[in-house]
Design a protein around this nucleic acid. Structure first.
Lengths: 300, 300
DNA sequence: TAAAGTGTTGCAAAAAATGCAACACCAGAA
DNA sequence: TTCTGGTGTTGCATTTTTTGCAACACTTTA
C-alpha cells in the first residue's frame, strides 16, 4: 500500500534507531529518508524524533504517532484480507505453462511470495518445449503462459512483453571476464556450450551469429541449462543465459556473467499472458498481475 | 496529512458520487483523480467502485475500504490533537457544533477572547438544525456542542445547562415598549415575526401559546433571525429572541427588548457539552470550560 | 439526433522524490 | 589533542511521479 509508505519508513526508523540503517534496509538513501521525516514533522508542526549523536529516537509525540502507525498498518492488512476473501482470490488453483528458460529462479521465488499472501492458492507448473506452452492454453490445461519467444502469439492475450538481455557465462578468470560487454564475434574462439535447438535462446544466438555470417559450432549441446553453466566452471568454455535465468549467486561457482552485445539483432521477447478472450478466475488473474508487476520491475 | 490524501480522494468520490464532481471540489482534474483511483485499485487488485453511466458507486470492497478510510482519518485527527496537547496545551483545533440561536453574538465574542489568550488554537464552527448538532458529536466531527433545547441529550455529557429567558423585540415606540414584561396574550394583536419550525425558540413560543389555548399565526416566517429582528424596525411587528441572542446595541436600530412572561411554561434549556464518555483534547476542554464560565455568569 | 453527463487515455509539462557528495556535529580511541 | 567512525542535514542535478489538457467512447435524456 503506497499511502502507508511514509508510515512504514517512520516505523522502520523507530525500530532500527538510526536514519542510515533504516535507509539501508529500505533500499533508499539516508537523505531521501531524512527529508521524508522532516516533511512529516513539518506537517505535524512537531518533532517526532529526538536527535542523538547515536541516532534517532522517538519522543512522546513520536510514540503517539507510532501507535497510530502500527494500528493503521494492521488495520490495512485486515482490510486487504477481507477484500481478498470476498473477491475470491484467496483460494483456487492456478496452472502455469512455461518454458525451461523462464522457470529456474524467477518463478519459484514469485510463487513463494504469492503463497505467503494467499496460502490457500495452489499451483501447477508445467514445462513445455518452445511453442507448446501457448497451445496448452487452448483447452484450458493451463491458465497462464510465461514463455520466451512464443510461436503462437495469436492465441494469447499478452499482459507483459519485454526483451531479455542475453548474458555470456564464463569462469571468473576467463580472458573475456573483464569486459563490459562482448560480441558474438569474440566468442567463436572459445568452446561453446549451447542449448539444443528448439530452445528460444539458441534461436537468438544463431540469428546473431548469422547476421555476421558465421555459424556457431557448439562443443557441447544439451537441454539442461544447469549442466551447461556448470561446464563453464574452471574452463575456457562459454555458456549463455537469459537475464531471467541468471543465477543470483554465480560467484559461488567461480563464474561471472557478461552482457552479450547482439549487434542490432532483436533480443528475444519474454511474454506472459493468457488465452485470448478468456476471463481468468480471479486467483489466476491476480497472480498474473503479480507476474506482470515483477517482470516489469526486474527487467525494465 | 499528506499520506491521507488518496484516502480523502476516495472518500470524496464516494460522497459526491462522481469523479468529475469530486475532482472539482478537490481542485484537481478528473483525469488525475481517475488515475489515482485506478492506481489504488491496481494496488489492491480489486475494483472498489462500480462504474455506472451516472458515476462511481463503491462496491462491497469499496465499502470495506471506506470504513477503514473514515476510521483512519478520524484516528489521525485524534493523534494530532493528542500531540498538540502535549506541546504545552496552547495549540489545537476545536470543532464546535451549534444552532443558529446560540451563535450570533455570544460565540464570536467568546472565540475572539479565547483567541487572544491562545493564538495557536484554531476553530471550526458548524451550524446545524435542531437535533443534528448532538448527533455530529458521535463521529467526532465536532468536539463541543452548544445547543438550545437538545433532542439527543443522552449522547451528551453536559457541562452547562441553564434556561434562557425569551425576549420580545419591538420598535422603540411600540405600544408595548414601556412594559416591564409582557405575556404572550399581549402579543397576538400585533403581526408576529417567527422563526421557522424546527427552531427551538419557536417550539417554546408555541408551547406557551398552547397553554392558554391560542395558536400563533405568524405574519412572516423565516430561518434568518437577523431578518426577523430587522423587520420589527419602525413597525408594530414583534419578533422574539433568546437572551443569548440579544444584540447588545439594539438601540441603534431603534429597537428595544422586553422579557416575555411565559406563565409557568418551562423556558427552553441552553446546553453545552461534549460526547458522553469522550475525554476531550485539552484545547477543547479548556474552551468548553470558558464557555461554561461565561454562560454561568451571563445568565444566572 | 443532439446534448450533456459519465469514465478513460496519450502526451507534454510541471512537480515531487531521489541519489550523490559534501558538510557539521558528536563520542570514543589513539 | 587528533583522528576515526558514527550520526543527521543540505545543495544540486537527475530521475520519477503526478498533473492538466484535449480528445475519445459510452450512456442517458431531451
Amino acid at each position: 500500500m503506497r499511502h502507508l509508505l511514509v508510515l512504514k519508513y517512520i516505523e522502520k526508523i523507530a525500530r532500527t534507531g538510526s536514519l542510515r540503517s533504516a535507509a539501508e534496509e529500505l533500499g533508499i538513501t539516508a537523505s531521501a529518508l531524512n527529508r521524508r521525516i522532516l516533511g512529516i514533522e513539518q506537517e505535524l508542526g512537531v518533532e517526532i524524533f529526538e536527535r542523538h549523536p547515536a541516532g534517532l529516537r522517538p519522543n512522546i509525540a513520536g510514540e503517539i504517532l507510532l501507535k497510530y502507525i502500527r494500528d493503521q498498518i494492521a488495520d490495512m492488512d485486515r482490510v486487504k484480507s477481507r477484500i481478498a476473501d470476498l473477491s475470491g482470490m484467496r483460494a483456487g488453483h492456478i496452472n502455469i505453462a512455461t518454458t525451461r528458460e523462464a522457470v529456474a529462479y524467477f518463478l519459484p521465488a514469485l510463487i513463494k511470495r504469492h503463497l505467503a499472501e494467499f496460502p490457500a492458492v495452489t499451483f501447477g507448473v508445467n514445462i513445455y518445449e518452445r511453442g507448446e506452452a501457448e497451445i496448452s492454453l487452448l483447452d484450458n490445461t493451463n491458465d497462464i503462459a510465461i514463455v520466451f519467444e512464443p510461436i503462437h502469439l495469436r492465441e494469447m492475450q499478452t499482459v507483459y512483453t519485454g526483451t531479455q538481455q542475453v548474458f555470456c557465462i564464463m569462469s571468473a578468470d576467463h580472458p573475456l571476464a573483464e569486459r563490459q560487454s562482448i560480441k558474438i564475434y569474440d566468442c567463436i574462439d572459445f568452446p561453446l556450450l549451447l542449448p539444443k535447438h528448439p530452445e528460444g535462446i539458441r534461436l537468438v544466438l544463431d540469428a546473431t551469429a548469422g547476421k555476421i555470417g558465421i555459424t556457431l559450432e557448439p562443443a557441447l549441446e544439451s537441454n539442461s541449462l544447469n549442466l551447461l553453466r556448470l561446464m563453464s566452471q574452471d574452463s575456457e568454455a562459454l555458456s549463455f543465459s537469459l537475464a531471467i535465468n541468471l543465477r543470483p549467486d554465480l560467484g559461488k561457482d567461480r563464474l561471472i556473467s557478461v552482457p552479450l552485445d547482439m549487434g542490432g539483432v532483436h533480443a528475444g521477447n519474454l511474454v506472459a499472458g493468457h488465452l485470448r478472450g478468456r476471463t481468468l478466475p480471479i486467483a489466476a488473474a491476480r497472480f498474473l498481475e503479480t507476474v506482470n508487476k515483477n517482470l516489469s520491475i526486474s527487467f525494465s
